[in-house]
Design a protein around this nucleic acid. Structure first.
Length: 490
RNA sequence: GCCCCCAUCGUCUAGCGGCCUAGGACAUCGCCCUCUCACGGCGAAGACACCGGUUCAAAUCCGGUUGGGGGUACCA
């Protein structure tokens, strides 16, 4: 049996888009499922925009998602180099070969001339295609063009009849009319660089790619590529065109829909596992019930047969939910490791955390864990545990601390806290209950003002946990501070 | 303009002729738990785009319409 060889071929434009990440994931899962080879190839022929940094960003993003490649940057294999910019001689070589065979020719037409013809064709209701003006140029005509300073491109001479069929693993057989749909497209630009449709064939063929799994936006270009494969005598790989990812308005997902960069998601506090699991479900499903998958499970269960044909809207809410699920699955130790950088950046914890502080962090995390959707949420939710410098939510103060008896209640709690042997539920609850009788109120009327006094908000973990974490000294200080604030107001 | 792809709840989807009074997940709403918020539990609402066929039988097959997406470049 032949080894499955798939590839992900991003162009380094500065970041890895979630659509690209999903394409990479499907390739990676397919390779791992079939014990195949996952190749990473950098399509950096756009020299103006491609930089080493931009490439590194993509590698980092793939690494974050746990997609390791078997051949590619940093992992030399038998079919390198894996940067298109280092393969330029190959494209020239195969373009020459096509010209020798009479399957390619030089074209001196200018973009302006071509645009004019194109407009004319559209006006007449025809399909747009090159009119082969330069197919049979005489030596004199060529010399004339060169004298005019024109630099030629090389065009592929496409088939004059018949149809080219794409046997897509997801969409089935798709037929394209050779004459109308495959024109003599450019394979080498005037600057000597190959065009995408040409380079991708040369590279995929030379790298022995067996399955081309890519976005549906490439489906229409596939017949062109197949004709190149055939002209060059290369075996044609299998194709699988996966559905596009759309924004909420059903247009192609892009920056204007919000974050689309994988690394940006990472910074906001999305876990690698959640990203991968969610992305896997965008266009693929296993059965009618399972939505949560471990990575090994994904590898085991993934198949192209179960990839959907319809485009999928990127649903950030579902991703958030899933992130919460995986945050809750983390051990406290692991959660701490994930959140430490956020707390350090917020100035809550120093670069070197001693064991006492770490233990405190762990205790906080125990309470925060079920409340987190994003790792970054742990900053705002934990602020009052680390600093006295937090804002009082004025709306909440208005609503809760203005009730009658509030000051008396807080004073009562202050005494209870001062007198309790240990600040925990067992010791405090009886004292609080006494207060209920004394003031003739319910537990909430006692706890909510206390919560506001201690946290500045009406949302926090259970009050006994907050009390225990803050400790007697800070609790008393904060109640005192709150009482002073109330005095000033009245 | 021309060509290609697609069409089940708001969203992701299950469904590959009878198992469907269409299942699950997110989101929404209600109830429970409860000191708030989460978590968790229970429940509700919510879809086969439309029109023709084929068939004893259609969400499932075929055609058309409409809608959405993509391609049509010296971008990838």
């Amino acid at each position: 049996m032949n080894t499955v060889r798939v590839r992900f071929a991003p162009s380094p434009t500065g970041y890895l888009h979630v659509g690209g990440a999903r394409t990479a994931l499907f390739n990676w899962l397919y390779a791992r499922h079939h014990d195949g080879v996952f190749v990473l190839r950098i399509e950096d022929t756009d020299l103006a925009r491609s930089t080493d940094e931009a490439t590194q960003v993509i590698l980092d993003a793939l690494q974050f998602l746990g997609m390791d490649w078997d051949e590619g940057p940093g992992v030399e294999g038998d079919y390198g180099p894996y940067y298109q910019s280092k393969r330029l001689d190959l494209y020239g070589k195969y373009a020459d070969k096509l010209m020798e065979m009479g399957r390619a020719y030089k074209c001196y037409c200018t973009p302006e001339e071509l645009e004019k013809k194109r407009e004319e064709q559209i006006k007449q209701g025809q399909a747009t295609h090159y009119d082969r003006h330069c197919l049979h140029l005489t030596a004199e005509q060529e010399a004339q063009y060169q004298a005019e300073g024109r630099t030629p491109v090389i065009r592929f001479k496409s088939l004059d009849e018949g149809v080219t069929e794409v046997d897509d693993m997801i969409r089935g057989k798709v037929r394209f009319d050779n004459v109308a749909q495959v024109d003599d497209f450019v394979i080498m630009k005037s600057d000597g660089m190959p065009t995408y449709n040409f380079a991708v064939v040369v590279d995929d063929a030379l790298m022995r790619i067996t399955h081309v799994i890519r976005g549906e936006d490439h489906l229409s270009n596939t017949p062109k590529q197949i004709q190149i494969y055939q002209a060059l005598g290369f075996p044609v790989p299998r194709f699988a065109h996966i559905p596009m990812i759309l924004g909420p308005d059903k247009s192609l997902l892009s920056k204007r829909h919000g974050a689309t960069s994988v690394m940006q998601f990472k910074e906001e506090g999305y876990l690698s596992h959640a990203m991968v699991n969610y992305l896997a479900l965008l266009g693929w499903s296993y059965d009618d019930s399972q939505t949560l998958f471990s990575i090994p499970e994904l590898i085991e269960k993934f198949s192209l047969e179960r990839v959907s044909k319809n485009p999928a809207v990127f649903d950030i809410q579902k991703l958030e939910w899933m992130n919460g699920v995986y945050i809750r699955e983390l051990s406290l130790e692991d959660l701490y490791s994930e959140i430490l950088p956020y707390w350090q950046q917020a100035g809550f914890l120093p670069q070197d955390v001693n064991s006492e502080l770490k233990d405190y962090g762990l205790r906080i995390l125990k309470e925060l864990q079920p409340r987190l959707k994003l790792l970054a949420d742990a900053v705002d939710l934990a602020r009052y545990f680390f600093t006295d410098d937090y804002e009082y939510n004025q709306e909440v103060v208005e609503k809760i601390l203005t009730k009658p008896q509030t000051k008396e209640i807080l004073k009562y709690i202050s005494e209870a806290v001062a007198n309790a042997s240990v600040l925990d539920e067992e010791n405090l609850k009886p004292l609080f209950k006494q207060g209920l009788e004394q003031f003739g109120v319910k537990m909430g009327d006692l706890i909510q003002p206390l919560r506001v006094a201690l946290t500045g908000t009406n949302v926090s973990p259970g009050i006994y946990d907050v009390l225990a974490l803050l400790g007697r000294e800070r609790v008393l200080e904060r109640i005192k501070r709150t009482l002073e604030m109330l005095e000033e107001r009245s």
